Computed example of a mutant assay.
Amino acid sequence: MTSATVTQMKCACPSCNCIVSISDAVQKEGKYYCGDACANGHPNGSGCSHHGCECHA
């Protein structure tokens, strides 16, 4: 059996398109986010500010 190590994954925010490196991610409640805005539920409608991503949910 072959094993694999995951080093990147999609941001846990449902509306975000970002792929985040697990080592650089903001971890909250066992989930990985691309930044504080996504991890904190987009307070005041703030987006993640990453180029090409328009998440605000």
Rank of each mutant, 00 (worst) to 15 (best):
M1C: 03
M1N: 07
C13S: 12
V20F: 05
Q27C: 14
A12V: 05
A37Y: 06
G30N: 13
C18F: 07
P14M: 04
M1H: 11
P14I: 03
S49T: 10
S3E: 15
S49M: 12
V6P: 10
I22G: 05
C55Y: 04
C16Q: 01
K28T: 02
S23I: 06
Y33E: 00
C34N: 02
G52A: 08
T2R: 12
V20P: 00
A4I: 10
K31C: 11
Q27K: 15
T7P: 03
N40F: 06
N44K: 09
Y33K: 03
N44W: 10
A12C: 04
C48W: 02
Q27H: 10
C13P: 03
V26M: 10
S3Q: 15
S15A: 07
T2V: 13
G45E: 05
S49C: 11
K10S: 13
I22Q: 02
S15T: 06
S46G: 09
D36Q: 14
A39R: 06
N17P: 12
D24E: 15
P43M: 07
S46T: 13
C18L: 10
S15C: 12
K10W: 07
S15I: 02
K31I: 01
M1K: 00
A12R: 00
T7V: 11
S15M: 02
C38W: 02
